[in-house]
Design a protein around this nucleic acid. Sequence first.
DNA 1: GCTCGATATGACACCTTGTCACATCTCCTT
DNA 2: AAGGAGATGTGACAAGGTGTCATATCGAGC
Lengths: 204, 204
Amino acid sequence: MPKVTFYNLPAEKQQKLIAAAQSEFSSAPLAVASIANIVKAAGIPRGSFYQYFEDKEDLYLFLLEGMMKERKKRLEEILLNCNRNLFEAILEFYKQNLQEEENLSGFRRNVFLNMTDKAETTFSKILITENMGEAMQKIEALIDIGQLNVSNDEELIHLLKIVFAVTMRNQVEKFSKNLSNEESIANYTAELNLLKRGLVRPTQ
Amino acid sequence: MPKVTFYNLPAEKQQKLIAAAQSEFSSAPLAVASIANIVKAAGIPRGSFYQYFEDKEDLYLFLLEGMMKERKKRLEEILLNCNRNLFEAILEFYKQNLQEEENLSGFRRNVFLNMTDKAETTFSKILITENMGEAMQKIEALIDIGQLNVSNDEELIHLLKIVFAVTMRNQVEKFSKNLSNEESIANYTAELNLLKRGLVRPTQ
DNA sequence: GCTCGATATGACACCTTGTCACATCTCCTT
DNA sequence: AAGGAGATGTGACAAGGTGTCATATCGAGC
């Protein structure tokens, strides 16, 4: 996370640096992106960069967290619009993500195609707030648990992790195989339906 | 993949290079590992390295593919031992993986914590052979599809992709949160059970 | 106007990668 | 046995990346 000096910067300068970083991380994955390019685009000297962030990854995760928070907010809105139906909402969320990615920068693409554990942890906060208690109440306000085949909080967390894993895999596949939006949505829908009804044939 | 010159090398020299690479990639993820260390450990000049492999990533994916093939073979054995029951077998497979990782090199750890799309694609071949036809027949020889809640090949592929995604996520979580084997197996078992019975409460 | 801690700056040491001109080997032909 | 062509081996090197540090500058309080 940024150092205090970054937050003390005039908002304008912060934005310029963020924009420069977004641009660089859009055209190159973390390992390939260069600080030289970022500071050049932002118009700051190299030494200053290290006043604001620990290193390249620090800045990267900061951007990622910003994106994640914004996505989380969007998902929560969709959930409320879908009567708290998790599966309806997550599909709509997925569709909207693909839509946005059509225009949007390649940042998400690079994130998905190079998923480090730190990025994944940051990302998983979209769906999963892990710590029991207060956070669970918020989840239960957003998701109609009555519809789900779980009997306690622990199972609910597992369910969310499953949905997260499947969603991520489809996103990655979309980028890595260059699927069309329609193909990807069809795949994702099929997998969600499988998830819903169960992978094992019921014994009668 | 390696160039022909690599395969023309005496087996001993090949092995030394592979061992050196394994060691380097065990102590550092792809982006951090250095060719200098590998060639030093293998006792070959830097220039030679580029006769054998395109670059660092080429070697990395080659190692990964070797590991994947070996894992795939192991999974197939387990499937046959488990009467072709996919879920029983995949759990046993998971357990054995954790066991091995206790002693084994940190290579797998670094792979899981830094999953690029290329690595994931290589890896997904453990379970999924994608191309229809011949490959599907092999899958059907190994997995008792009668137990599964699918009605065609396409759905079967989706099912396998789901299982792959969930398995991967648990592996990553195991490493990234430093879970004990027992914790990780308990989580994985819980998620498999959820998958089997379905995430949505059946409407009566 | 002075002082001191915080911030800004860019030259620099150190490290990596991939290449290339040149040396050496291998094996076929004569 | 000599020659030669193509494959392979080799390490010095250019280009470029990272993080640091000595030094300059700023800014608030007295």
